[in-house]
Structure formats: C-alpha cells, structure tokens
Design a protein around this nucleic acid. Structure first.
Lengths: 192, 192
DNA sequence: AGTAAATGTTACCGGTGGGTAACAGGATTT
DNA sequence: AAATCCTGTTACCCACCGGTAACATTTACT
C-alpha cells in the first residue's frame, strides 16, 4: 500500500481516537510506518491533511448510500431503515464516519479551515440524498421527515458521546421508527 | 468581581469561541484581567478549570429550566415549547450553554477527564427533567417523545455547526412541533 | 547497469503549551 | 502598626508541535 494511503488511514484511526488536535503529525507518520518527511512530501500541511481525510470520509459516506441502494434496489423505505440500523448501533462493525464528520466540525474552530468546508459540503449532499429517499418512498412531508431523521441521527451520535451509552443516543431505531410510521399515515387530525 | 469568577467568565467566552484546546491558560488569565499565577492559585490545573467551567454551565442549565417553570407554572407543555424556542434560534440572546456542553464532550478526547463526567451528569439530569415534563404534560409515550426531542435539539446544535446556517439545524421548532402534536393524538393506527 | 524518483534518517528551528519558583506590592484583619 | 493573606510580575523549565534542511538510502524503470 502506498505511503499516502497508509498515512490517511493512520490519520483516520488516530483522529478518531484522540481528536484532531490531540494527534501530532509525527504520531501519524509513525503509525503509518513512515516518518514526518514523507508525510510532508504528500501533504502540504496538517490542515490540508485533515481536509483530505475529511474528503475521504465524505466519499465513503456516499459509498455507503450507494451500497444501500444496491442492496435494496427501488425500495427507498428499506434503504432508509437499513441506514438507520447501520448507524444506530454503537458496537463493532458500525460506520462511524458520520460521527467523525461531526467531531471534526466541532474540533476545528476556524470556520475558514478547508476541513470545515469539506464537512459542510458532505452534510449538504447527505441531507439531499435523505430527502430524495423520503420522497421516493412516498412518505408524507418528505423534507420535514428527512430533516427530523437527519437531526435524530446527528443527535444520537452527539448524545452517545455526551450522555454516555445509557443515554438516548443508543436507541436510534426505537426513536426513528415511530417517526417514519407516523409519516406513512394519512395527514393527522389537528389536536383540539 | 473576584478573580476566580472573572477567570471562569473569561474561560467560558474563549472556550466558546476557540474551543477548549484552542485556548491557553495564559490567554484566559489575560482576558480575565489577571495573570497565570493567580489562575493557578485558584485552579489546580487546566483540566480542573475546564471541569469547573462545565459544572458552572450545568448549573446554569438547571436555572434555565427553573426559570421556565417560574414563567409557566403548572403548564409543562408550554415550558417545553418555550425551551425549544429558546434553544431553537441561533441569533443573539440565545442560550448556547447546551451547545458548549456538547462541544466540550467532543473536544475532550479522554473519557476519564473530569469535564467529561460533568457533562455526562448534566445531560442525564437534563434528560430526566425533559421526560418529567413530557409526562406531566400528559403527552403520549413521554419517554419516547422526550428522547426524540432531546436528540432533535442535540442534532440541531450539531447540524448548525456541521451543515451551516442553511442546514436543518436552524429549524428546530418546525421539526419538533409536529412531533409534539403527534403525541397529543390518541395512539396511531398501525400502517398496513 | 545506471539513472531518477521516492523514501528514510537525523538534526534542527521557532513558537507555544502547561506549570512553577521567587520575590515585590496591596489589602485586610487583629 | 504588625502580621497575614491575596495579588501582580518576571523569569524560567520542559515538553511538544508544525515544519524544514541536508544527506543517505532504497526502489523502480529503461
């Protein structure tokens, strides 16, 4: 595997464990089985390394959606449910890339940091894909539901970190399920 | 105002703007109109300063709930709505303490950091208070609704940061309103 | 084989970070 | 007034971090 890829992989693992600010370039290089110089021959600065790390994360996020589309072709509702299930757990084999996105957005204080731009772009496309699926699934109020699901998922990731494993972050499916079900109903009768 | 309080205030402002890792103790002391030594005479270390900053934030969070209770005595539903409104906007005069809590939980990588414990405790009491209000308001499925609202709020804060002001983070009330309304209805008919 | 590109190694730089020592000045109490 | 406490000032320590220079070494390609 070329060093550039090894560096990106190592950066990903370390950024996830210790945070972006908590990892020095030297530690990344060492974890990648190389040294600081070759790192700087492939990346202009740590800033740009972070940005590329986030772009890679975004690309992988898109691939997750494509895989779901391939697994449940034509069944948008099932794609949504499968996605919720895949990001709802917090054990092994779970996709934490979205979580890493959010962490990066918070850990990078400077709004002009290229990594922040990458995250914003990824979240936009992410949201639009979700809206498209909700619409395709024939659910009522697709934009509203998509945004609700989006926030539930983001909130679940945040709550898992801030409220611990016993908090509401661990029960995404339990919380999102009724929401989807409600949007399969006809329009609700307004409350008295 | 005693130096200790000035230091906590300065720390709060700087932590919010530049992140916890992005602010050095010297900058905090200077912003507080004092110096590093007096800071270290009041706080053992930066770690413990951060922890106290978060405990102060948690106390203020509790006060927000108490104020809401005083403003709408006996009307739990109105308290919930007022709370959503107060944290839903992102302009001036908005309470960002919850947002700062979440930021801290993500910026502090070490799970054993005393600040992390403070955040977890605060989020637990926060959630329980919300559950209590949902139950008191006579809403259906109070635990479920409370957790949904909790995640919507956390997600809204995260999305405002990661997806920008045009993302779904800016429309908390629009997203939470229908959810509450749905829980004022009788039990829904299961979808076919 | 030979050449050029990519990688490894070491040492270094300037800046900054958290944290401390020692001492001087001001305020408060008795 | 005297003793005590709190504060301010300066200087310093050590560790680390992002980034670079110079040179040695390996790899790859023709």
């Amino acid at each position: 595997m070329p060093p550039r890829q090894r560096i990106l992989d190592a950066a990903r693992a370390l950024f996830f464990r210790h945070g972006i600010q908590g990892v020095g370039v030297e530690a990344i290089a060492e974890a990648a089985g190389t040294n600081k110089m070759t790192l700087y021959r492939h990346f202009e600065s740590k800033e740009l390394l972070v940005a590329e790390y986030l772009r890679a994360l975004a690309a992988e996020n898109v691939r997750v959606w494509d895989d779901l589309d391939a697994a449940h072709p034509g069944d948008a509702l099932e794609q949504i449910k499968a996605w919720l299930h895949s990001v709802g757990g917090h054990g092994e084999g779970i996709d934490h890339s979205g979580c890493a996105m959010m962490n990066a957005a918070i850990q990078i204080a400077d709004p002009e940091h290229p990594g922040r731009k990458a995250v914003e772009a990824a979240q936009r496309t992410h949201r639009e894909r979700l809206i498209g699926l909700c619409r395709e699934a024939g659910l009522r109020d697709p934009e509203l539901l998509a945004d609700q699901l989006f926030l539930l998922v983001e909130g679940s990731r945040a709550a898992y970190r801030s409220a611990g494993p016993d908090g509401p972050g661990s029960s995404l499916c339990r919380l999102a399920g009724p929401l989807i079900a409600a949007h399969q109903q006809p329009a609700p009768v307004p409350a008295t």
